[in-house]
Design a protein around this nucleic acid. Structure first.
Length: 556
RNA sequence: GGGAUCGUAGUUCAGUUGGAUAGAACGUCAGUUUCCGAAACUGAAGGUCGCAGGUUCAAGUCCUGCCGGUCCCA
């Protein structure tokens, strides 16, 4: 309907003024009506005419069954007020299927085996899942991928400490570690290895050697040696631990993990091929890409020891994803410290797969901090871990609300992360996130439960008449807000930004609460109409929360 | 030193291809419960949109310079 109206206005412009414009109706403040357009203002210059006169000209000729009132206001806006009927049919519609049939690959979370899952991983996990769901809402098929470093220096550090802890390469001794302690146990070993690497020259040399052995174990496909058994067990423990956390978070499961070891040979091969083709050059024994001619910087792809860097691996990863999925759209979400790095990798990738670069979107986010200002540093042990966030939220929920409900805590964390535009740093305040007052996940859950409770109490055979037209002010405000839903989702899809949905849902809940406060539903002569509204509202709220992967409980 | 990015109320954040009086939340202050869930609602105070220029009928939004923060590269 919105499109119809836009086309009608575009038509009028051509007919009356001889100029076509790209008309976009925007939602206006309630006092001005339902939709507004600034076409007259934009055309004024071109036509060298008074914008208000142009607006009047268009407005006076604009007729549509859905329009109840047309007004010219301010410097030359055309304000449209829809009929109540039109508002009803506008609300409750499914979002536009703009991505129907599209194959999307979404890569996010990306924790490293043998290391701890930190707050940043938690953030991309939740945000990535929401973006994936958002795209699914628009009709896309989304493949959720999780990429992580199962090779590399951090693995060397961890393996070194494990072997030391076990007093030799004794895989059998691993059995002593309890199942639910494994992830924590591994991250403790990593910290030990990391500290030794920095403090002790001999340990450093040993770790470098072990790191090489890990790579070798992959090339030799070694699953039998004692060293290999320790490694594979450790890797599996990591994946199991990650899966447990994802399960706990109630996010959509990943389609698969892509381990770094799998993409490494692909990446190396690409670098060698690229070297022969003149994409790379040798420099002090390393293979580098000179980014300066492209306004970028130089980066190493194979180091002087012949080992692939992150760059080479990312190249392999991109190639592998493309070969396996042939996607229409590739979405990657990472921290924003690698934006420059990513540009170089994409520039190189352009040489191999220009199509992939065109179809890829890289979103980045900032650092996750607690209000005190603790910053993550993945080197030392004193980082903000994912479970620290979860624990802080549980703790806050207990002290603020006097109980500890998993659904509330999850809603609190997810909503706190998602309500902010993706890009900047996030200051996560546990107390604020679980609060039932204010712009929080639990507030929305409560707003939903309240509405459902009314519906549950309504008797089936009901008094009152259904009057879809001639709505009262409060009723109309609520319906007007509900009718915005699909437009908000569409915009979120276009921008890949779930936070628009958060902002909207909060406004929606506020509108409802205000309506609820001032209008009796049950037993009122207008009961049937109002129940219909409450139903639409609750469904809309639930649908929106679903995109964010937040539950909408009937009771709480 | 080069590059990226951000700077909006005391705090945390929204702000549509440039559009109407810059909006929320928390906090502060003042109110609202015989009645559908007060875990709610109503209202008030609080702003040089970092600073200075420029483009435009119109700038928080675009351009230039400067200041400040964060990150990347050497």
């Amino acid at each position: 309907m919105k499109q119809e109206l836009e086309q009608a206005i575009d038509h009028l412009c051509k007919e009356l003024l001889g100029i076509g414009v790209d008309v976009e109706l925007t939602r206006s403040e309630e006092q001005f009506g339902d939709y507004a357009t600034n076409v007259a203002l934009r055309l004024a210059k071109e036509l060298n005419a008074n914008p208000r006169e142009i607006a009047e000209k268009i407005a006076s000729k604009l007729y549509h069954a859905a329009i109840a009132k047309t007004e010219v206001a301010g410097p030359g806006f055309i304000n449209l007020t829809l009929t109540d009927d039109a508002l009803w049919s506008l609300s409750g519609q499914p979002p536009a299927q703009t991505l129907a049939g599209k194959q999307v690959v979404a890569e996010y979370s990306d924790p490293n085996p043998f290391k701890v899952l930190h707050a940043g991983h938690l953030y991309t996990t939740i945000t990535g899942d929401a973006i994936a769901k958002l795209l699914e809402t628009a009709g896309a098929t989304v493949h959720r991928l999780n990429y992580g470093g199962d090779v590399g220096l951090h693995v060397g550090k961890c393996m070194w400490a494990i072997v030391r802890f076990l007093e030799g390469e004794h895989p059998k001794k691993l059995e002593a570690v309890e199942t639910d302690k494994r992830l924590e146990w591994l991250s403790e070993r990593y910290i030990e290895g990391n500290n030794a690497y920095e403090a002790d020259e001999q340990a450093k040399a040993e770790i470098v050697a072990i790191n090489k052995r890990v790579y070798q174990l992959h090339t030799n496909n070694d699953h039998d040696s004692d060293f290999a058994q320790i490694y594979w067990t450790g890797r599996q423990w990591s994946y199991d631990g990650f899966d447990r956390l994802y399960d706990q978070l109630q996010i959509t499961p990943f389609e698969k993990y892509i381990p770094e070891s799998e993409v490494t040979p692909v990446g190396i091969e690409m670098v060698q091929k690229g070297l022969a083709q003149g994409v790379f050059e040798e420099s002090d024994g390393a293979i580098v890409f000179k980014g300066e001619p492209h306004g970028l910087h130089t980066r190493v792809f194979l180091n002087s020891g012949g080992l692939p860097t992150y760059e080479a691996k990312d190249l392999g990863l991109a190639a592998l994803k493309w070969q396996q999925y042939n996607f229409d759209l590739g979405v990657i979400i990472t921290a924003n410290d690698i934006v420059e790095y990513m540009k170089v990798v994409l520039k190189v990738l352009e040489h191999f797969y220009p199509e992939v670069v065109k179809r890829s979107k890289h979103f980045t986010h900032g650092v996750i901090k607690l209000p005190g200002g603790i910053k993550m540093s993945s080197r030392k042990g004193n980082i903000l871990r994912a479970i620290d966030i979860l624990e802080a939220a549980h703790e806050a929920n207990k002290t603020t609300n006097g109980h500890d409900n998993q659904q509330t805590v999850l809603a609190a964390i997810k909503y706190a992360f998602l309500k902010q535009r993706i890009g900047g740093d996030i200051i996560y305040d546990p107390a604020e996130s679980v609060a039932l007052e204010g712009n929080s996940g639990p507030y929305l859950q409560y707003a939903h439960a309240r509405a459902r409770s009314i519906l549950a109490k309504a008797k089936t055979a009901d008094s009152g008449q259904l009057t879809v037209d001639s709505l009262e002010t409060g009723e109309r405000s609520l319906l007007r807000k509900i009718s915005e839903y699909t437009e908000v989702v569409d915009r979120s899809v276009q921008e890949f930004m779930p936070h628009h949905i958060c902002t909207y849902l909060y406004e929606l809940a506020q509108t409802f609460n205000s309506f609820y406060e001032h209008n009796r539903v049950l037993g009122d002569p207008r009961e049937l109409t109002r129940l219909r509204l409450v139903q639409k509202y609750a469904d809309t709220l639930k649908n929106g929360l679903q995109i964010l992967n937040i539950t909408a409980p009937e009771r709480m």
